[in-house]
Design a binder for these strands. Sequence first.
DNA 1: TTGTATATTATTGTATGCAATATCTTCTGC
DNA 2: GCAGAAGATATTGCATACAATAATATACAA
Lengths: 236, 236
Amino acid sequence: MNLIDKNLLLDQNQEDRAQSIRDSLRDAIIDRRLGPGSKLAEAEVGGLFDVSRTVVRSALQMLAYEGLVRIERNRGAFVSNPTPEEARQVFDTRRLIEPGIVRAATVRISKADIDDLRDHLTLEDRFMNERGPAARRAEIKASGDFHLKIARHSGNAILEKFMDELVARSSLVIALYGRTGVSRCGHSEHRDLLDAMERGDADRACDLMLHHIDHIEADLDLREVAAMTLKDALAT
Amino acid sequence: MNLIDKNLLLDQNQEDRAQSIRDSLRDAIIDRRLGPGSKLAEAEVGGLFDVSRTVVRSALQMLAYEGLVRIERNRGAFVSNPTPEEARQVFDTRRLIEPGIVRAATVRISKADIDDLRDHLTLEDRFMNERGPAARRAEIKASGDFHLKIARHSGNAILEKFMDELVARSSLVIALYGRTGVSRCGHSEHRDLLDAMERGDADRACDLMLHHIDHIEADLDLREVAAMTLKDALAT
DNA sequence: TTGTATATTATTGTATGCAATATCTTCTGC
DNA sequence: GCAGAAGATATTGCATACAATAATATACAA
């Protein structure tokens, strides 16, 4: 378990260490370096980050609140293992929320922000063309970040927080049920979406977003419940 | 500060005390027994509930995560004091989410559940006809619970959690910016909404929900920013 | 060998102690 | 009388100690 970013910890000198541990763990989870079911023992994590269990506990509780970690009393914290049903709920919720976010962002976004998003797209392209698992992880991360950046332009901090949670849960779900890792059409869809936003065509942008979410979900295999629970049992 | 529900604490024997403290505090906040800006000192709360600061801290962190409490480093936890802008974001988000919830609930809800909601409406009526601040508090609480019950029938646990947070934040906002306390037309609107759901008329139910949210927000006075920050400064 | 009971170990839940920070009080100089 | 500084007090942040619970290993009997 080599998931520490000591720089990051020393950087923000003394400013809420629990939060930075939460961020590191979160990255590790959505990057799949920590797979679903992994145990997160307080002492072990504390040792890695060189803090007491108190602060680790705080970080784990945050992750539990956003659904990335499941805490069982007297047993400890584990990376969540969402069921297919929970997976569907994640995407149902995204279908409900993201069109509204895109609509708000389309109205408010500036030219400079559009350019920033275009830069992000080229980054996604780069990862897409690279080989290897590290590139795959980076690709998934960047894909999620695209959605988060749009949410950040919605001008609504609550929606932004909700999207943080939904994107993180999505990554977990994709890690579990993804077929190809990440949908190949995803990036062109991002580009089309951004084009529509730049034109100020909110209706079109909403439509594209809905289809995009459909495509992500369609790339999952949410059937075999039984096989999954078995795998779960063995994975512990 | 007499907000303890010892029964409730003893009831659930040993099963996560932090959570039950969070619930008690949350009720106290949305009931306005703890007004915006109130300080929640760890030692004081711990004394009231007869637990150590450790577990109080955990409860406060949960409340901070759902936005009911603001934690300032080395200063402590305070009941949130949402700005008018944040208030608008709460209702914008509800307008985005609740129609989807109502639509899902309309499809899934059973006759028995409809009856349960009707019982809830008579409860709301009773509080509405009573006098005094206690009845007012109960009225606001019951009004929020109506929305939560509908969310519980959406079949989507994530949306349910989001609504928990949004309803709690709404109560806080109404406490701060409400004119008449609770909108007088609210209850007939609840009834109309439920009627539409019973008929299976999802479109109509969504429409009613949107207007209902508009009415709640219209009953607020979200203008005077300056006056509010002054009051805030004095309230400390 | 397998199943059960018991003892051992490991891990979490909670309380408490100490250091760091903020807040309040008092005092001094103007 | 008031502003500002210095000290006293209170409160939080974090680490640690101990108790409670679960997990594991061992021993024994069928």
